[in-house]
Simulated scan of single mutants.
Amino acid sequence: MEFLSFDVKNRTLALRKAEIPTPGPNEVRIRIAYAGVCGTDLHILEGSFPCKKEGFLTLGHEFAGTVDAVGSTVKNFKLGQKVAVDPNSACDKCTFCHEGSYQHCSSGGINNTIGIFRDGGFSTHAVVPESQVHLVPDDVDLQQAALVEPLSCLAHGWKRLNGVNVGSNVLVIGAGIIGLLWACMLHLHGLRKSVTISEPQEKRRKLVNNLDLDFLAESPERLKQTFDVVIDCSGSAAAVQAAIPLLGPGGRLCVFGVANPSAKFSIEPYEIYKKELTILGVNINPFSFPRGLGLLHAMADRYLNYDKLGIKVFSLSQYREALDSLKKGEISKAVFKL
């Protein structure tokens, strides 16, 4: 098999080959079709996000493909089925896991993610536990199915927000892939002219118009009105700080983007008191993958067009070009076609 090997100590990537692994009794081997590059992958490569501490790692926690082999005790999957992988799992032992909040688990959740702490999808093949494999609807393309992991995180965010009422004034910060997917989900749920996407790069503001959502794409310095809901998809502490004064009374701030762990911003507690603001975070996708698949099915034909979303497909051998294009903001997302 062919895969991208990340040297954790030296933070370097190399394209390598190895024997195709054999699945264990409760594992499924997947012939990967598409694997998405997440902003978190960029943070890991630059050393600003925690991952496996030693040795080598195959990154990639957003991937879909077909079942290539199954272990002796696997009963729910057959060869050739289209599947996607939930990279996160619970330890099933701690209080958080038993309460359905494995995103806070000290040994599961984000601390044991496939593609961050275990070998992931930047490879032609991956072996994963059966419990983390999900069938993809027959009428959904595998290229679109590569987006189900971020969609499952959006599903968790939607639940944390307890939904957004039609007619609410909403600000989405950032027109990268996550901001664009949030815009699409808001449109799917019936919001129309009351949504604004804040983005400093003109080329990314144009992507919003390409999606034909009838939403306003605006540069941050031109934002004047107040909003009922602000969803940060930028991971920028400065952007979050600038958005707080834009919240109206009873406003809600959803911190969805992953910031550098050392980033800080200041806030006036009086504003929280006076306006009765709510500030909430969204951490991965606990038990949200089935809802992510539901969003995938509902959004596929209307919203998940790669060209309109600014997604570009690369081969594994083009990994340098893919990462460089993503870092420069020339594309909203890079996806490897295996």
Rank of each mutant, 00 (worst) to 15 (best):
D228T: 09
A300C: 10
V83W: 00
A64G: 09
K224W: 08
T113C: 12
A18P: 08
D7H: 09
T226R: 10
A14H: 10
F77R: 10
A217Y: 00
P21L: 09
I116Y: 15
L15W: 07
C94N: 05
K333M: 15
W158A: 05
V128C: 11
V136A: 08
T278K: 09
T12Y: 05
W158D: 07
Q143L: 06
G60W: 08
I279H: 07
N162L: 06
R11Y: 00
D68R: 03
G55T: 11
D7I: 04
L277V: 13
S101D: 14
C51N: 03
A263H: 07
K312M: 10
V166C: 11
R160A: 13
L247E: 11
L247D: 12
D301E: 15
L211C: 00
L223N: 06
S266W: 02
L207E: 05
L207P: 03
Y319F: 15
T226Y: 03
H134T: 07
S262Y: 00
P21A: 08
A33W: 03
A90P: 15
R204F: 01
T22Y: 07
E2L: 13
F227Y: 15
D7V: 00
K206E: 14
Y34A: 04
A145I: 08
I177Y: 06
K312S: 14
P25D: 14
V28R: 14
K275S: 08
E62M: 06
R31M: 02
Y273Q: 12
A300Q: 07
S106F: 08
N169V: 00
A263Y: 02
P249V: 12
Y306R: 02
G257V: 00
G39C: 10
Q241T: 04
F63I: 04
A175C: 04
I32S: 02
L326C: 06
R160G: 07
P50M: 03
K275V: 01
K82Y: 09
L161A: 11
A183L: 04
I110N: 12
P21D: 10
G65N: 13
L323P: 10
D141H: 10
L161E: 13
T95E: 15
G115M: 02
G257K: 03
L45H: 01
H297F: 08
V258E: 03
P25V: 14
D324F: 04
V136E: 02
P245S: 11
D7P: 01
L280H: 11
P269L: 15
S317W: 06
M185K: 13
W182H: 05
D138W: 01
T22Q: 12
G100M: 13
R302C: 06
A242N: 15
A126R: 07
K327L: 04
D92G: 06
E130L: 00
E130G: 03
A14C: 11
L45S: 04
G190R: 04
T22F: 07
K52M: 07
L326T: 08
K78R: 15
E202F: 05
N111H: 15
